[in-house]
Nucleic acid binder design. Structure first.
Lengths: 226, 226, 226, 226
DNA sequence: CATGAATGAGTTTTCATTCAT
DNA sequence: TATGAATGAAAACTCATTCAT
C-alpha cells in the first residue's frame, strides 16, 4: 500500500515498539478518530485529542510529531479496515450471495465504525488531500479487479447488465450513508444503525433493492427475511 | 421553514435590501459556499471568503456579523434548493416516472451544485449543529408525507413492497454520493458528473438499479437509453 | 477658562448654530455623558453614543470630528457646572452658613448629576489627560482664592484652625463619594441619593461632621434637622 | 469570601503552584494593577500588561485564560488588603484612638497602594460588575458589624450621635480621595501623599476634622501634632 | 444635514509546536 | 517517557474614521 503511515517517534532506534509505546499510540489513534471525525481536521485540536487519550499535549507530540501526522496515521489505520470487505468478493461464488455478503459487511462496518466512515468521507469530500494517491493506486486496482468479476458474472448471464462501477458506487453510497448521515436518519426515524432492529431492516431493504435492481432475486425463495 | 437566516446588516430599517447590499450579500454567500464546502467550518477563514468575494474582511463583517452567521446564511440559502425536488413527487403520477424524475433531478443538483451538497453533508456529519431543528421539523414532515405516497403506490400494487423511508435514503445516498465523493470517483474513473457522458450513464445506472430494485420496469420497453 | 471645547462642525461658516444643530449637539453631549461615565473613555463607543442620541454614527461625526472631541466637549460641558458652587462661597457671609450651603449644593449636584461626577472622577483618576491644564490654572486660582476666605475666617476667630485646602478636599471627597460610589452605597444601605430621605440624612450627617469638625456648631440651636 | 479568584493554569492538579508559576502570576498581577488602574479595563491591553510583566502575550495567557480573568484576579488580590483595616476597629478600644488609627491606616494604604485604590474606585464607579456580590455580602456584613460598634460607643455616651454608616462613608471618601484624585491634588498643591510632609499633614487634618466632627477631642491634650 | 458603505489598525484569543527539565 | 513553560503565527472580531452620495 502506498505509504500513509504517521512518523515514528523521535528516536527511531528500535523498530519494535515497547509495550507502553504500543498502548499509547493506540490510545492516541482512538482519541484522534473521535476528534477528527467529529470536528474535521481543522476543528480538532491536539489538546483535546491528548486529553481524550489521557496524556499531556507534549507527550502526544512525542509519539506523533505533528497534528498532520496523527491525522495521517488515523487515516491509514482505518483505511485497511475500510477496504477489506470488497477484497472478499469471490469470483467463484454466487453473485447474489457474494453481493449480499458484501453489502451486509459494509453495513456492519458502518454500524461498528461510524466515526471511521465519517473521517473517510470527510477526507474525500475535502479533496482527499492525504489519501488521493492511495485512491488512485490501490483502490483503483481493487475496483478494476472486482469490476471484472462482476463483468464476468454479467457475461455469464448470471445477473443483469448493470455497470459494475456504478454498482459498486451505489453499494458504497448506500451503506456508508447510514453511518455518515446517522444524525439525519435519527432526526427522521428516531433511530439508527446502533439499534439492532433498524440495522436488520436496513440490511434487508438495501440488499433487496440493489440485488433486485441488478436482476438477482432477493430474498431467495424460502429465505426468511434477511 | 424554521428560521435559519443570517442577520441583516446593522440598520434593518428596510426589509428590502438596497441594490448594492443585495449584490454583496450574494457575492459573499457564493464565496462562503466555496470555502465552507472545501474546508469545513473551522478550516474556512473569513479572510479567504472576503478575498474570494472581492471585498475587505471588515466590509464582509459589515454584512454578516460573524463567521457563524455567514455559515448559517449559506446553509439556509442552499437548504431551500436542496429540499425542493422531493416536494415535486406527485401522488397522482406514475410511480416509475415520478421516482425516475426525482432521481434525475437529484443527480442534476449534484452535478450543478456539488459544493452545496458537500456543505450539507459536512453539516450533517458534524452532528447538524445548525440545522438539526430543520431536519426534525420540516424535513421530517416532508419525508412522512412522501413516504405515505409511496406506501399508497405499494398498496395499490403498483410497485414492490420496499420500505419507503429506506427507498428515500437510498436515493439520497446514491445521488449525493456522486457530488460528495467526486474526487474519489474521479480518481477511480477519470471523470465525474461534470462530464455529460458520465452524468448520463450515472442517471441511467442509478435509475435502473433503484427502479428495478423496487419492482418497476426501467428503462421502459422501447425507451432508448435514458 | 482654558480652552477645552470640542471642535465646531466641519463647515464653520456660521458662528451661530442653527436650531437643529444646537439640538443635536445637545443630544450628543447628553448621550456621551451617559456612555463615558458608564464605560470610561475606552469602553465607550461612538456607535452606542450615536444610537443613544438617536442618530447615525456618520451624522454624529458630522457634529464632532472625533471620539476625543466628543469627550472633550462633554468634559467642558460639565466642568462649568462642577465648579460653580465653590465660586459662591461668600467671604462676607457667616462661615457656618456658607460652608453648609456649599456642602448642600455639592450633594445636590451629586444627586442630580451623578454621571457628571463619575466622568470627572474618571478623568482625574486616569491622570486628567484632558483637563490637567484647567486644574492647574482655573481651578487652582479658585481654590487659592477660597482658601484665603477660609483663612480670613480662621484669623478672625470665627472657626477652628483647619487647613483650608484639606477642608476643601474633604468636602469634595465626601460629597462626590455619594455620587461616584453610589453602587457600593446602594449595595450596603439599599438606597442612595436618589431617595429624598437618604439625600436629606446625607446632607445632615456630612454637614454636621464637617462643620463641627471645623469648630462650627451645627445644626444651630433650635435649627431643626437640616 | 465570595469567590472572585482568577483561574489557575491549565493543569490544576496541584493546589500549590510551582515556584515559577507563583513568580509569574505575581509579576502579571503587579503589571495588571498598573495597567488597569491607569487605563481602566477597556483601555488596558493584554499586550502592554505582558510587556510590563516581561513576558510574551501568549505566555501570559498561559497563566490567565483571558483579559477578564486577569482583571478578576487583580481585583481579588487587592480586595483583601482593602478591607483589612476596618476589621481591626476594636469595640473594646477607645473610640478616638480606634477611629484615628483606622483613618491613619486608610491613608497609609492610599499612600502605599494608590493604584489599588483607583482600580477599586474604577470598578465600583462602573457599576461593580465583578465585585458587586462581594460588596453585598462580605462588605455589608463587615459594615453592619462595625456600625454596631460605633452605635454602642454612642449609646455609651463616648461620642456624638453621628450616623455610623455615614461616618464610615466619610472616612472612606476622604482617605481614598487622596489616592484617587492625587493628580488633582498635585495640580493644586504641588505635592501629594508620596511626600511625607503632606502625608502627615493629611493625617492630621482629616483625623482632626472627622474626630472633632464626631464629638471626640483630637488631637488630645498634650498630644503633639499627629 | 444625513446616511450607508467601506476600511485599516488594533485587540483578544486560539493553537500547533518547541524548549528545558 | 513525560510534562510544564513558552512562543509565534494566525484568526475572529471591534471600532474610529473616511468616502460617496
Amino acid at each position: 500500500m502506498t505509504c500513509l503511515s504517521g512518523q515514528s517517534p523521535a528516536s527511531p532506534k528500535q523498530v519494535g515498539l515497547s509495550r507502553i509505546q504500543e498502548k499509547n499510540r493506540s490510545l492516541i489513534l482512538e482519541a484522534a478518530l473521535g476528534e477528527f471525525s467529529k470536528k474535521g481536521f481543522s476543528g480538532a485540536t491536539v489538546e483535546r485529542i491528548a486529553a481524550e487519550a489521557g496524556m499531556s499535549k507534549s507527550n502526544l507530540l512525542y509519539y506523533f510529531s505533528s497534528k498532520e501526522s496523527i491525522y495521517n496515521a488515523t487515516l491509514a489505520h482505518i483505511l485497511e479496515i475500510w477496504l477489506t470487505p470488497l477484497k472478499t468478493l469471490d469470483p467463484l461464488g454466487d453473485p447474489a450471495d457474494e453481493l449480499a455478503a458484501y453489502i451486509r459487511q459494509k453495513i456492519e462496518l458502518s454500524a461498528e465504525f461510524p466515526e471511521a466512515s465519517r473521517l473517510f468521507a470527510n477526507e474525500v469530500m475535502q479533496g482527499a488531500p492525504q489519501i488521493l494517491p492511495v485512491l488512485q493506486t490501490d483502490l483503483k486496482r481493487l475496483v478494476l479487479e472486482k469490476s471484472q468479476v462482476i463483468k464476468d458474472w454479467i457475461e455469464a448471464g448470471r445477473m443483469d447488465a448493470v455497470d459494475p462501477v456504478h454498482l459498486i458506487f451505489t453499494i458504497w453510497a448506500t451503506t456508508q450513508h447510514y453511518a455518515d448521515f446517522s444524525v439525519q436518519i435519527r432526526a427522521l426515524t428516531g433511530t439508527d444503525l446502533s439499534d439492532p432492529d433498524f440495522h436488520q431492516s436496513t440490511v434487508a431493504a438495501v440488499t433487496s433493492l440493489i440485488l433486485n435492481g441488478a436482476g438477482l432475486k432477493w430474498p431467495r425463495e424460502g429465505d426468511p427475511g434477511a
